[in-house]
Simulated scan of single mutants.
Amino acid sequence: MSNLPDVTFSTVLGSCVAACIRDRVANVGGMNHFLLAEQSGAARDRYGASARYGAFAMEQLINKVLSQGTGRKANLEIKIFGGGKINSALDDVGAKNIEFVRQFLVDEGYVATSQDLGGTYARRVLFKPHSGRAFVKRLDSDIGANVAREELAIARRRVVVPAAVSDIELF
Rank of each mutant, 00 (worst) to 15 (best):
E151L: 09
L139C: 09
R138F: 02
G144Y: 08
D167Y: 00
A155P: 02
S141Q: 13
A163Y: 04
D140H: 09
V161Q: 13
P162G: 13
N146I: 02
S166D: 10
L139H: 08
P162E: 14
D167M: 02
L139K: 07
A164I: 04
L170V: 01
L170Y: 04
F171D: 04
I143R: 04
A153C: 07
V147K: 01
G144R: 06
V165G: 06
K137V: 10
A155G: 03
R158D: 14
R157W: 07
R138L: 09
V165K: 07
R149H: 08
V161F: 02
R158E: 10
A163T: 07
L152I: 03
R149T: 08
P162T: 06
R158K: 14
L170S: 05
G144W: 01
E150H: 12
I154R: 11
R157H: 04
G144M: 03
G144F: 09
L170M: 11
S141F: 09
A148K: 01
R158H: 09
P162Q: 12
N146Y: 05
D140V: 01
R157Y: 05
R149N: 12
D140F: 05
S141V: 13
S166C: 00
R157C: 09
D142C: 05
D142V: 11
D167R: 03
V147S: 06
D142W: 06
N146E: 09
S166L: 00
V159L: 12
E150G: 10
L139W: 05
R156L: 13
R156D: 11
G144Q: 05
V147Y: 11
A155W: 10
E169W: 07
V159Y: 05
F171A: 06
E151Y: 12
R158P: 00
I154N: 12
E151Q: 14
K137A: 15
I168H: 01
I154H: 00
F171Y: 14
V160I: 12
L152V: 06
N146F: 06
R157N: 13
D167V: 01
V159D: 09
S141L: 10
A164R: 12
I154W: 08
D140N: 15
V160P: 00
K137R: 14
V165E: 04
I143E: 12
A145C: 03
K137P: 01
R158F: 06
P162V: 04
D140C: 07
L152A: 15
F171T: 07
R156N: 10
E169D: 11
V159S: 13
R156G: 03
V160A: 11
E151W: 03
V161L: 08
V160E: 15
V161C: 07
R156Y: 11
K137D: 13
D167A: 03
E150A: 05
A148N: 06
E150N: 13
I143T: 15
